[in-house]
Amino acid sequence: MFTSHQAPAVRDAADPRHLARALDDLALGFSRWRLPLGLARLDLRNRYRGSVLGPFWITLSTSIMLAALGFLYARLFRIDVADYLPFLATSLVLWNLISGLVNDGTQCLTDREDVIRQMPQPYSVHVLRCVLRHALAAAHVLPLVPIVFLLCGRWPGWGLLGTIPGLFLFLVNGVFVCTLLGMVAARFRDMGPIMQSGMQLLFFVTPIIWKPELLGDRVGFLALNPVYAMIELVRAPMLGQMPGLLIMAAALFYTAVLGGLAFTIFVRWRGRIAFWV
Protein backbone atom coordinates (compact mmCIF):
# COMPACT_ATOMS: atom_id res chain seq x y z
CA MET A 1 0.00 0.00 0.00
CA PHE A 2 1.37 3.34 -0.93
CA THR A 3 0.12 6.22 1.08
CA SER A 4 0.77 9.44 -0.73
CA HIS A 5 2.50 11.27 2.07
CA GLN A 6 4.15 13.64 -0.29
CA ALA A 7 1.17 15.00 -2.19
CA PRO A 8 -0.29 17.87 -0.19
CA ALA A 9 -4.02 17.85 0.43
CA VAL A 10 -4.62 20.70 -1.98
CA ARG A 11 -2.89 20.98 -5.34
CA ASP A 12 -3.82 24.04 -7.33
CA ALA A 13 -2.43 24.76 -10.78
CA ALA A 14 -2.89 28.48 -10.13
CA ASP A 15 -0.84 28.30 -6.91
CA PRO A 16 1.68 25.48 -7.34
CA ARG A 17 3.82 26.34 -4.25
CA HIS A 18 6.95 25.10 -6.04
CA LEU A 19 9.43 25.97 -3.29
CA ALA A 20 7.50 24.49 -0.36
CA ARG A 21 6.87 21.27 -2.24
CA ALA A 22 10.49 20.93 -3.38
CA LEU A 23 11.66 21.37 0.22
CA ASP A 24 9.10 18.78 1.39
CA ASP A 25 10.37 16.39 -1.25
CA LEU A 26 13.98 16.81 -0.10
CA ALA A 27 13.12 16.54 3.59
CA LEU A 28 11.10 13.37 3.03
CA GLY A 29 13.67 11.83 0.68
CA PHE A 30 16.53 12.39 3.12
CA SER A 31 14.52 11.28 6.15
CA ARG A 32 13.74 8.02 4.33
CA TRP A 33 17.45 7.37 3.69
CA ARG A 34 16.94 3.68 4.40
CA LEU A 35 14.95 3.34 1.19
CA PRO A 36 17.54 4.76 -1.25
CA LEU A 37 20.34 2.99 0.63
CA GLY A 38 18.51 -0.34 0.49
CA LEU A 39 17.74 0.16 -3.20
CA ALA A 40 21.36 1.14 -3.93
CA ARG A 41 22.60 -2.04 -2.25
CA LEU A 42 20.13 -4.14 -4.22
CA ASP A 43 21.24 -2.39 -7.44
CA LEU A 44 24.84 -3.28 -6.77
CA ARG A 45 24.01 -6.82 -5.77
CA ASN A 46 21.77 -7.34 -8.81
CA ARG A 47 24.45 -6.07 -11.18
CA TYR A 48 26.94 -8.68 -9.99
CA ARG A 49 24.34 -11.32 -9.22
CA GLY A 50 25.65 -14.85 -9.43
CA SER A 51 29.26 -13.83 -10.01
CA VAL A 52 31.96 -15.19 -7.73
CA LEU A 53 33.61 -11.88 -6.89
CA GLY A 54 30.44 -9.81 -6.81
CA PRO A 55 31.09 -6.07 -6.56
CA PHE A 56 34.76 -6.86 -5.96
CA TRP A 57 34.93 -7.11 -9.73
CA ILE A 58 35.20 -3.32 -9.63
CA THR A 59 38.18 -3.68 -7.31
CA LEU A 60 39.84 -6.24 -9.55
CA SER A 61 39.30 -4.42 -12.83
CA THR A 62 40.53 -1.15 -11.33
CA SER A 63 43.65 -2.91 -10.01
CA ILE A 64 44.43 -4.35 -13.43
CA MET A 65 43.86 -0.97 -15.07
CA LEU A 66 46.16 0.68 -12.53
CA ALA A 67 48.94 -1.85 -13.03
CA ALA A 68 48.77 -1.68 -16.81
CA LEU A 69 48.51 2.10 -17.13
CA GLY A 70 50.92 2.66 -14.25
CA PHE A 71 53.87 0.80 -15.73
CA LEU A 72 53.22 1.92 -19.31
CA TYR A 73 52.79 5.63 -18.66
CA ALA A 74 55.57 5.79 -16.08
CA ARG A 75 57.78 4.60 -18.91
CA LEU A 76 56.26 6.99 -21.49
CA PHE A 77 56.54 9.97 -19.17
CA ARG A 78 59.96 8.78 -17.94
CA ILE A 79 58.87 8.96 -14.31
CA ASP A 80 59.74 6.51 -11.55
CA VAL A 81 56.89 3.98 -11.16
CA ALA A 82 56.93 4.38 -7.38
CA ASP A 83 56.41 8.09 -7.92
CA TYR A 84 53.78 7.78 -10.64
CA LEU A 85 51.54 4.96 -9.36
CA PRO A 86 50.26 6.71 -6.20
CA PHE A 87 49.34 9.72 -8.32
CA LEU A 88 47.59 7.59 -10.92
CA ALA A 89 45.73 5.45 -8.36
CA THR A 90 44.26 8.49 -6.64
CA SER A 91 43.31 10.20 -9.91
CA LEU A 92 41.79 7.18 -11.59
CA VAL A 93 39.66 6.10 -8.64
CA LEU A 94 38.27 9.62 -8.25
CA TRP A 95 37.71 9.97 -11.98
CA ASN A 96 35.78 6.71 -12.09
CA LEU A 97 33.52 8.01 -9.35
CA ILE A 98 32.91 11.28 -11.19
CA SER A 99 32.25 9.74 -14.59
CA GLY A 100 30.01 7.10 -13.06
CA LEU A 101 27.94 9.73 -11.30
CA VAL A 102 27.64 11.91 -14.39
CA ASN A 103 26.74 9.09 -16.77
CA ASP A 104 24.32 7.33 -14.44
CA GLY A 105 22.98 10.66 -13.23
CA THR A 106 21.46 11.28 -16.65
CA GLN A 107 19.38 8.13 -16.17
CA CYS A 108 18.57 8.37 -12.49
CA LEU A 109 14.99 9.51 -13.16
CA THR A 110 14.21 7.95 -16.55
CA ASP A 111 15.30 4.53 -15.26
CA ARG A 112 12.77 4.85 -12.46
CA GLU A 113 9.85 5.50 -14.78
CA ASP A 114 8.01 2.43 -13.48
CA VAL A 115 8.05 3.67 -9.89
CA ILE A 116 7.50 7.34 -10.71
CA ARG A 117 4.35 6.67 -12.72
CA GLN A 118 2.86 4.15 -10.29
CA MET A 119 3.42 5.45 -6.80
CA PRO A 120 3.96 8.84 -5.27
CA GLN A 121 7.48 9.01 -3.89
CA PRO A 122 9.79 11.94 -3.27
CA TYR A 123 11.93 12.40 -6.38
CA SER A 124 14.95 12.91 -4.15
CA VAL A 125 14.75 9.19 -3.31
CA HIS A 126 15.68 8.31 -6.90
CA VAL A 127 18.54 10.80 -6.91
CA LEU A 128 19.90 9.53 -3.59
CA ARG A 129 19.65 5.95 -4.81
CA CYS A 130 21.95 6.79 -7.70
CA VAL A 131 24.45 8.72 -5.55
CA LEU A 132 24.54 6.04 -2.86
CA ARG A 133 25.02 3.30 -5.44
CA HIS A 134 28.15 5.04 -6.66
CA ALA A 135 29.32 5.76 -3.14
CA LEU A 136 29.01 2.04 -2.35
CA ALA A 137 30.84 1.11 -5.54
CA ALA A 138 33.57 3.64 -4.69
CA ALA A 139 33.91 2.06 -1.25
CA HIS A 140 35.09 -1.07 -3.06
CA VAL A 141 37.95 0.75 -4.80
CA LEU A 142 38.95 3.61 -2.50
CA PRO A 143 40.95 1.25 -0.21
CA LEU A 144 43.11 0.44 -3.26
CA VAL A 145 44.65 3.90 -3.02
CA PRO A 146 46.37 3.54 0.38
CA ILE A 147 47.38 0.01 -0.63
CA VAL A 148 49.14 1.34 -3.73
CA PHE A 149 50.83 3.98 -1.57
CA LEU A 150 52.11 1.27 0.78
CA LEU A 151 53.36 -0.87 -2.10
CA CYS A 152 55.26 2.12 -3.43
CA GLY A 153 56.86 2.66 -0.04
CA ARG A 154 54.91 5.80 0.81
CA TRP A 155 52.31 6.53 3.40
CA PRO A 156 50.05 9.55 3.28
CA GLY A 157 49.71 9.57 7.09
CA TRP A 158 47.62 12.47 8.24
CA GLY A 159 46.95 13.26 4.60
CA LEU A 160 44.32 10.53 4.71
CA LEU A 161 42.27 12.65 7.09
CA GLY A 162 42.80 15.65 4.81
CA THR A 163 40.86 13.86 2.07
CA ILE A 164 37.67 13.77 4.10
CA PRO A 165 36.39 17.27 3.27
CA GLY A 166 37.08 16.62 -0.41
CA LEU A 167 35.30 13.28 -0.40
CA PHE A 168 32.36 14.85 1.39
CA LEU A 169 32.22 17.51 -1.33
CA PHE A 170 32.15 14.67 -3.87
CA LEU A 171 28.97 13.35 -2.26
CA VAL A 172 27.36 16.78 -2.16
CA ASN A 173 28.20 17.42 -5.79
CA GLY A 174 26.97 13.94 -6.64
CA VAL A 175 23.53 14.88 -5.35
CA PHE A 176 23.62 18.13 -7.34
CA VAL A 177 24.85 16.48 -10.54
CA CYS A 178 22.31 13.67 -10.43
CA THR A 179 19.43 16.05 -9.68
CA LEU A 180 20.40 18.41 -12.47
CA LEU A 181 21.31 15.82 -15.12
CA GLY A 182 18.48 13.48 -14.15
CA MET A 183 15.91 16.20 -14.79
CA VAL A 184 17.50 17.74 -17.87
CA ALA A 185 18.03 14.32 -19.44
CA ALA A 186 14.44 13.28 -18.68
CA ARG A 187 13.20 16.29 -20.62
CA PHE A 188 15.88 16.36 -23.35
CA ARG A 189 16.87 12.84 -24.27
CA ASP A 190 19.99 14.00 -26.10
CA MET A 191 21.57 14.91 -22.79
CA GLY A 192 22.70 11.33 -22.06
CA PRO A 193 24.78 10.89 -25.22
CA ILE A 194 26.06 14.48 -24.97
CA MET A 195 27.37 13.89 -21.46
CA GLN A 196 28.87 10.58 -22.47
CA SER A 197 31.00 12.04 -25.22
CA GLY A 198 31.71 15.11 -23.12
CA MET A 199 33.10 12.94 -20.34
CA GLN A 200 35.33 11.09 -22.80
CA LEU A 201 36.84 14.38 -23.86
CA LEU A 202 37.17 15.51 -20.27
CA PHE A 203 39.13 12.38 -19.36
CA PHE A 204 41.91 13.34 -21.74
CA VAL A 205 42.04 17.08 -21.05
CA THR A 206 42.06 16.62 -17.26
CA PRO A 207 45.30 15.68 -15.51
CA ILE A 208 44.36 12.12 -14.58
CA ILE A 209 47.01 10.05 -16.29
CA TRP A 210 49.32 13.02 -16.89
CA LYS A 211 50.65 15.18 -14.12
CA PRO A 212 49.54 18.82 -14.02
CA GLU A 213 53.16 20.01 -13.79
CA LEU A 214 53.61 18.97 -17.43
CA LEU A 215 51.62 22.07 -18.43
CA GLY A 216 54.49 24.25 -17.22
CA ASP A 217 53.54 27.89 -16.79
CA ARG A 218 50.00 27.28 -18.08
CA VAL A 219 49.08 25.19 -15.04
CA GLY A 220 46.87 27.99 -13.70
CA PHE A 221 44.34 27.42 -16.45
CA LEU A 222 43.48 24.06 -14.93
CA ALA A 223 41.39 25.78 -12.27
CA LEU A 224 38.87 26.40 -15.06
CA ASN A 225 38.22 22.65 -15.14
CA PRO A 226 35.75 21.72 -12.39
CA VAL A 227 36.74 18.07 -12.53
CA TYR A 228 40.38 19.00 -11.95
CA ALA A 229 39.47 21.16 -8.97
CA MET A 230 37.47 18.35 -7.42
CA ILE A 231 40.12 15.69 -8.00
CA GLU A 232 42.94 17.92 -6.76
CA LEU A 233 41.02 18.59 -3.55
CA VAL A 234 41.42 14.93 -2.58
CA ARG A 235 44.59 14.10 -4.47
CA ALA A 236 46.78 16.83 -2.97
CA PRO A 237 46.35 15.73 0.67
CA MET A 238 46.98 12.11 -0.35
CA LEU A 239 50.27 13.17 -1.93
CA GLY A 240 51.16 15.10 1.18
CA GLN A 241 50.41 18.60 -0.07
CA MET A 242 47.88 21.19 0.85
CA PRO A 243 45.45 21.93 -2.04
CA GLY A 244 46.17 25.40 -3.41
CA LEU A 245 43.93 28.24 -2.32
CA LEU A 246 42.86 28.77 -5.91
CA ILE A 247 41.84 25.12 -6.18
CA MET A 248 39.85 25.21 -2.96
CA ALA A 249 38.11 28.40 -3.99
CA ALA A 250 37.39 26.98 -7.44
CA ALA A 251 35.95 23.75 -6.00
CA LEU A 252 33.67 25.66 -3.66
CA PHE A 253 32.65 28.03 -6.44
CA TYR A 254 31.76 25.18 -8.80
CA THR A 255 29.85 23.43 -6.03
CA ALA A 256 27.85 26.59 -5.33
CA VAL A 257 27.05 27.14 -9.01
CA LEU A 258 26.07 23.51 -9.55
CA GLY A 259 24.01 23.47 -6.36
CA GLY A 260 22.24 26.71 -7.24
CA LEU A 261 21.43 25.48 -10.71
CA ALA A 262 20.25 22.06 -9.54
CA PHE A 263 18.09 23.53 -6.79
CA THR A 264 16.52 26.15 -9.05
CA ILE A 265 15.61 23.61 -11.69
CA PHE A 266 14.35 21.14 -9.09
CA VAL A 267 12.12 23.75 -7.48
CA ARG A 268 10.72 25.04 -10.74
CA TRP A 269 10.14 21.84 -12.70
CA ARG A 270 9.87 19.12 -10.09
CA GLY A 271 6.13 18.72 -10.71
CA ARG A 272 6.75 18.02 -14.39
CA ILE A 273 9.04 15.02 -13.88
CA ALA A 274 6.15 12.55 -13.91
CA PHE A 275 5.16 13.90 -17.33
CA TRP A 276 8.70 13.71 -18.70
CA VAL A 277 9.89 10.22 -17.80
Binding site: F2, S4, Q6, A7, A9, V10, R11, D12, A13, A14, P16, I116, R117, Q118, M119, P120, G271, R272, A274, F275
Partner: peptide, 14 residues
Protein backbone atom coordinates in the same frame (compact mmCIF):
# COMPACT_ATOMS: atom_id res chain seq x y z
CA UNK B 1 -2.97 9.40 -6.01
CA UNK B 2 -0.64 12.40 -6.25
CA UNK B 3 1.49 11.25 -9.16
CA UNK B 4 0.48 13.95 -11.63
CA UNK B 5 0.08 17.56 -10.57
CA UNK B 6 -2.87 19.41 -12.11
CA UNK B 7 -1.91 21.34 -15.24
CA UNK B 8 -5.04 23.41 -14.77
CA UNK B 9 -7.63 23.72 -12.02
CA UNK B 10 -7.49 22.55 -8.45
CA UNK B 11 -7.65 19.26 -6.61
CA UNK B 12 -8.21 18.78 -2.92
CA UNK B 13 -7.82 15.35 -1.35
CA UNK B 14 -8.51 15.08 2.39
Amino acid sequence: AGIYDPVGGRLSVQ
